[in-house]
């Protein structure tokens, strides 16, 4: 998961993002987050504000959004805290993008359960569609990232695309999801397994089977 780096501080970057400021709507949200903390502890709100800023950048660029340095400086200024502390937080957490990403940020989980269930195939399929790790595809639509466990091990393998999780993937199912996204549709989030609702055991319960219909007292059977 390494290979993260800050975007270079160039005059072009400053020209593009130097005048970043909250939209009216986001300003209200930012102040809402700040108000959660006691006065003087406003810097506790740095994480929701970074997320908010990333989303605003995303809205402006029609991507998932990222955090250019001037935007981090703006947040530091807004929270009256040293900018290095903001950068520390932004570089620590993987969900803050430090470089531009595509409209759809395809984050494939590659941790052990997903790997055992075939995440290597998922990554290969993504690459076959022209995605490369950490890069924006030519059409500006895709960025591929391999991430660590997203906590969906019961429905492995999975990808997270922007705010949605797509689970129980096969190469075909992934292609269907990506095609739908590319076509501007909203594919169903969550598990892609037909007949499965969430992360319940596929093929019906494997334990406490008697509890399915009514409350069953197991204590006699111990």
């Amino acid at each position: 998961m390494a290979n993260r780096h800050l975007a270079h501080d160039t005059p072009e970057l400053r020209a593009r993002w130097g005048s970043f400021a909250w939209t009216e709507e986001n300003k209200a949200k930012a102040d809402y987050h700040i108000a959660k903390y006691p006065p003087g502890r406003q810097k506790s709100a740095v994480m929701p504000l970074l997320d908010l800023a990333q989303r605003q950048v995303g809205a402006e660029t029609d991507t998932q959004g990222w955090l250019p340095l001037p935007v981090m400086e703006y947040i530091a200024d807004y929270l009256d805290m040293p900018v290095i502390r903001v950068v520390e937080v932004a570089t620590f957490y993987f969900m803050y993008n430090l470089v531009p990403v595509g409209k759809f940020h395809v984050q494939v989980c590659g941790t052990t359960p997903c790997m055992l269930r075939g995440s290597d195939d998922i990554i290969a399929a993504c690459k076959k569609r022209g995605m490369a790790k950490g890069e924006v595809s030519e059409d500006g639509l895709w960025t591929l990232t391999e991430v660590e466990c997203m906590g969906n091990c019961a429905t492995a393998p999975m990808v997270q695309i922007n705010d949605g999780n797509y689970e129980d993937l096969t190469v075909e199912r992934l292609d269907a999801v990506l095609d739908a996204l590319a076509a501007g549709k909203e594919p169903k989030e969550g598990t892609q397994e037909p007949g499965r609702h969430t992360s319940e055991p596929s093929g019906g319960p494997t334990t406490l089977k008697d509890m399915v219909d009514a409350n069953h007292d197991y204590r006699k059977e111990w």
Binding site: L6, V83, I84, R85, V87, F92
Partner: peptide, 19 residues
């Protein structure tokens, strides 16, 4: 004077000043 910080995490952690 808050100017030195630890960027990134884990093995990639780096001590630096802002920019």
């Amino acid at each position: 004077v808050d100017e030195i910080g630890a960027l990134y995490r884990g093995e990639d952690m780096q001590i630096t000043t802002y920019l």
